[in-house]
Every structure is written in structure tokens, then in C-alpha cells.
Write a protein that binds this DNA or RNA. Structure first.
Lengths: 218, 218
DNA sequence: TAGATTGTTAATCGATTAACAATC
DNA sequence: TAGATTGTTAATCGATTAACAATC
């Protein structure tokens, strides 16, 4: 009621809250009852200050004497992040990367539902991949509209990324996970997360080379 | 000689330079001769100021009248980023994600060489995937040492990530691309790039849900 | 109580953006 | 020349870290 979603948490904090959730769920399943911010920090690879700062977005139950109750804190973080099972997800592109992402998604994200894959290759259309139907990308707009899809994952060729984005946005998608190396143009109300694997590789290579150079000089 | 690698460029700038390289190469192959910082900025999805700031790390050839010569700038960025073909790359884990990454790597990174894949599953050991041999992970340390591998890609189960990292670092790896959701502990001289696909998904889901909530209230 | 930790505010740090003299 | 852009420095912005009163 009181502008619950007005103070939209920034992407970095959301990312860390996801890490905390994973750590807390694991600890909870291992039977750990309580922890301090410094414990969560070391397991998440951040500073204790950062943990406490991030947890200001979450209704916490910490006390100076006992720290946080693991189970309750995990639940609070889950509530804060939202379950998002309300909306379904579509995947664009069923090439090697798309198929791997689909498998990964189905294996690790039981709380979200991948509802359809869209492909241009007619050999794949009509089949199923990991129990998800593959449909002709020509039917994308209609599907997104009728199923009220809000989340799309892009794993298609670079040159198709922007046209596909335009269609998705026009059809009502508000959140896009982009695995292509293209920087997408999208309206401000649409959230775009770039996961540029090619860039990741290039960056790692850069620092490996830089390190070698330094060693040679030392 | 004069501390060429002393001012190690920070990861964000390196990332953007990779984007500039891609854009410039594409423009060059399309026959574009010259551009201004504002053109490169709009194609890379950043501000013109940012472009010029980033290009301070690169020996540039820009002039107020004509902007930059595309081909020369592309070459300068390539030189700055380094080719890194000196070192070979190993992949740990040949599951769905690992295989997809291998395919992606072989298809898009001809300038780097993937030299071996390591797996624990005996059914895969001894085979080839995309012309790359799959070896028993027990032989990892010896291989990394003898081939002087400096770059490793992690695509194995979460619980194996930290032990594998320890072995890689001990054997001389200096740069790790981590596709597991685990935050790795590694010495400061080792560069670790986290590409957490699970987190990407969760973040996209968060903003989709947040957006829906806002709309409901508006 | 004494001591350590939380929740939160203040200070610092780093990165992006703006400004502007030099210049073609 | 006049005008626009570069290279670079200064200002702003945002995020992380430090500090500290409240507290159990």
C-alpha cells in the first residue's frame, strides 16, 4: 500500500540478495540455526558492512547477541526478492546456447516456468525440448500477448536481437535477459540484463595476458 | 619498458573496450571510414564522455574535424586489449552448459585456443567434443603445469568449484571464468570473473515482478 | 554488567558525467 | 575563420566502507 515498490532495489543489491538467499538456504538445510553478518559476508564474498547495508531492504530479525536466525532471514530474503512464479518465461533461440540454457533453467529454476521456445529453424518447430514446446518465431507476438509473458531470454543470432526485442516489448515483455553481444535499445521501463559470455571470455583473456606481461617484467 | 602494464585497466573499462572492438570491427567490414565519439557511444550504449574517457587507455588517432579513423582505432583497441593467443584455455565440466560453452567458444573465439576439457564422468573421458579432447579431471594438475595453462573456465557442479580452483591456482592458472554460482576464494593475483547465469535469471525475474506490482498500483 | 553486534548514518572511495581549453 | 570535436581535467553521482549509538 505504502509505495511498497517505490524504492526499487538497485541491480547490484538484488544480485547480492540472490547470493545471500542461496547461502542461507544451504545453511538452513544443513541445520545451521543462527549466524552473524560477518559469517554471511565471508560466505558471500562481501564485507560485513555490505551485508548489513543490503539487509536494510529486508525486514530482518537480527539481534546484537545472537545475530540472525538463518531460517527466518532466508524466508525474509525470499519474500523480498519475490517468487515471480506468476509470470512465465519464453526463450528465443534453440541453438547450442539456447538448449543449454533451457536445460540449466529446467534443472535449477523449479520456481519459474519456461513456457515456450521460439525458433526460426523449421526442423525444430513442433518438437519438444526438455518438455517445452518449440514454436515458430513468427507466432511470437501472438503468444506473448495471449499468455501475458513478461520475461524473455535472448539466445539467438546477434542480428536478430534488436528486431526480436522490439517485438517483445511491443507485445508487453518488461524484463529481458540478453545473451547476445548486442547492446539492446529498449524503453526505460523495460529491464535489460546483459550476460555477454563473449565479453566474459575476452576479459578473462585480457587479465591473463596482463598478468603474464607483469610477471615477465618482474 | 616504462611500466606498460602498471596502470592495469579496470574491469568495466576492459568490458567496454571489448564492445568498442566488436562495433569497430563490424563498421570496418561494412566499409565505414570514420566516426565520432558520439557515434561509437550510441552503438555501444554508453555516453560520448565515457567513450572518450575509455579511449584514453588507447593510443588514439582522433581529430576534432574528422573524428576517428575506424580501421586504425579498431587496430589500436585490439592491440590494447591484447590477443592473448599465447596462452591456451581449459574447460572444466562437460555437462550441458560446458558443452554449449565449448561450442560457443569454438564458433566465436578463433583467436583463442581451447586445448582440453576435463570431466569426472568416465563415459566422456577419452572422447572428443568439437575437436577438443576430454580428459580425466585427475590429470588436471599435471596438464596445466606442463602446458602452462593460464586460463580456466569453470562449468562444473557447485561443490567441485572451490577444490578445482585451489588445484588450478596451485598449478599456475591466473585467470578464471566462473560459471558456477559459488563465490570462489582465490589469491589476489588471480583474476576471477563470475558469470552467474542463475543470478541473471533471478534478477530478471525480480524486476519483472517489481514492474508488475508497480503497474497494479498505478 | 561488560562486550560484541545490529541498524543506520556519515565518510570515503571510485566511476561516470560535465566542462572546457586546444585544435583541426 | 567559425564551428564542432577531441583529450583531459574538474564536478557530480552513486556505491562501498567505516563509524557509532542503541541494544541484547
Amino acid at each position: 500500500m505504502v509505495k511498497m515498490s517505490k524504492h526499487l532495489i538497485n541491480p547490484r543489491t538484488v544480485g547480492r540478495l540472490c547470493i545471500y538467499r542461496r547461502v542461507l538456504n544451504q545453511l538452513s538445510s544443513q541445520g545451521t540455526k543462527r549466524l552473524f553478518s560477518r559469517d554471511l559476508a565471508s560466505m558471500a564474498g562481501v564485507s560485513p558492512s555490505q551485508v548489513r547495508q543490503d539487509l536494510m531492504n529486508v525486514p530482518t530479525n537480527g539481534t546484537p547477541q545472537n545475530g540472525y536466525a538463518v531460517k527466518e532471514l532466508a524466508e525474509a530474503v525470499v519474500t523480498c526478492l519475490g517468487t515471480a512464479q506468476s509470470s512465465s518465461v519464453v526463450l528465443l533461440g534453440a541453438g547450442h546456447l539456447g538448449q543449454a540454457l533451457l536445460h540449466y533453467f529446467q534443472a535449477t529454476q523449479p520456481r519459474m516456468a519456461m513456457s515456450a521456445v521460439f525458433e526460426i529453424n523449421p526442423n525444430m518447430v513442433g518438437k519438444h525440448l526438455h518438455d517445452v514446446p518449440v514454436w515458430d518465431i513468427a507466432t511470437l507476438d501472438q503468444y506473448v500477448r495471449s499468455a501475458q509473458v513478461r520475461i524473455a531470454i535472448l539466445a539467438l543470432p546477434a542480428e536478430e536481437a534488436q528486431p526480436a526485442t522490439d517485438r517483445l516489448v511491443a507485445a508487453g515483455v518488461t524484463s529481458i535477459l540478453n545473451f547476445t553481444p548486442v547492446r539492446l535499445n529498449a524503453p526505460a521501463h523495460v529491464f535489460v540484463e546483459n550476460n555477454d559470455i563473449q565479453m566474459s571470455l575476452e576479459r578473462v583473456a585480457f587479465y591473463a595476458a596482463a598478468h603474464t606481461k607483469e610477471k615477465v617484467q618482474a
